[in-house]
């Protein structure tokens, strides 16, 4: 049985699954990266994702265009981000707690809307598999990377986009400055709070897509609490990735690949208790992070609200 795990077909299968599983984590964690880079810890990602998932599903369920559904999910996600901004930036609330409030609000409201507007678990036709021409014909690589739905590609595309915005644009410079030393940024004429609002809204929008990638991409259903705490893992992955897009990609892939691996281990009947197998991605994420050397410090102003003229 164990040797079955090391066949090429299994290995390809693990990679194929892992690449797909990483999608919602990527969207959500990249969004959270923006927020944390500017100094705001948003623990409410899961709630924003649920709102996005419901919105996208609702639009698609009522016959709306799938891209319209994604746009709606982004819009609602942005609104959730805006709400977090009001509470955590303007009102300077303790971020560890306001995020939990946002999570509960999103969890409750999405379920409530589902109950009142839809009422039973239904399915929709979500984004179909889109085998990219030429690329998907590549041996092995084609199946692993280029045989997914369009939101999966978009998630990976967001990695260089995020890296570019954060590292190569003036806006990115402002974000990093605000997260590192808000007083200095302020004295240079950067509006600390405005930047933080924008990053929270971007984070909300991406969390909205993360939800949509589940409800109209990978699962094509909506169910109460369907993310099941996925958003919290996404927040953890931002720490894993040391607030860099590439690092987040590494974390999301590691977590998802190990998750795919443990599913394969179970499916192939390798005699490990299922609970132990399920633990693997969580354990390994901690272990890998422990063993790697990191020099990057967290944004100095993370979790610290900013008030002018202190």
């Amino acid at each position: 049985m164990l040797n079955e795990l090391f066949t090429l077909a299994t290995l390809i299968g693990i990679l194929h699954s892992g690449v797909r599983l990483a999608t919602p984590y990527l969207f959500a964690a990249l969004g959270e990266t923006f927020a944390q880079r500017s100094g705001v810890l948003n623990l409410g990602v899961d709630g924003m994702m649920l709102m996005g998932a419901f919105t996208a599903f609702y639009v698609a369920f009522n016959g709306g265009n799938l891209w319209l559904a994604v746009a709606a999910a982004i819009g609602v996600g942005c609104l959730m981000g805006l709400l977090m901004g009001v509470v955590s930036v303007t009102m300077q609330a303790e971020q560890g707690i306001s995020g939990i409030g946002l999570y509960l609000f999103g969890l409750g409201l999405s379920s409530l809307l589902f109950k009142t507007l839809i009422g039973s678990v239904e399915s929709v036709s979500g984004f179909p598999k889109l085998a990219l021409p030429l690329l998907s014909d590549l041996p092995i690589i084609g199946y692993i990377f280029f045989d997914h739905n369009v939101l999966v590609y978009l998630a990976y595309l967001m990695v260089p986009v995020t890296a570019f915005v954060l590292n190569r644009t003036t806006f990115g410079l402002s974000i990093r400055a605000v997260g590192h030393n808000p007083e200095a940024a302020d004295s240079l004429g950067v509006s600390v709070n405005r930047v933080r609002y924008v990053t929270l809204i971007i984070g909300g929008g991406l969390a909205g897509v993360a939800g949509a990638s589940l409800s109209i991409g990978l699962l094509n259903v909506f169910q109460e609490n369907m993310t099941n705490g996925l958003g919290f893992i996404a927040v953890a992955l931002v720490y894993f990735g040391s607030w860099r897009a590439v690092g987040v990609l590494g974390g999301a892939l590691l977590f998802s690949l190990v998750n795919a691996l443990q599913l394969w281990v179970q499916v192939l009947g390798i005699p490990i208790p299922s609970d132990i197998a399920v633990m693997l991605p969580y354990v390994l994420t901690i272990v890998v992070l422990t063993l790697t050397v990191r020099q990057i410090q967290q944004p100095a102003a993370l979790t610290k609200p900013y008030e002018r003229g202190e």
Binding site: G13, H16, S17, R20, L21, P24, L214, L218, L219, V221, Q223, N225, M226, T227, N228, L230, N259, A260, L263, W264, Q266, V267, L268, G269, S274, D275, A277, V278, M279
Partner: peptide, 23 residues
């Protein structure tokens, strides 16, 4: 082939488990 997600509500992992079974 039997797999468990370790959870009653992990819809995403259950979906991926189905994918793995199919593969």
């Amino acid at each position: 082939n039997v797999s468990f997600t370790g959870n009653f509500g992990d819809t995403a992992l259950a979906a991926e488990a189905a994918n793995v079974h199919i593969q």
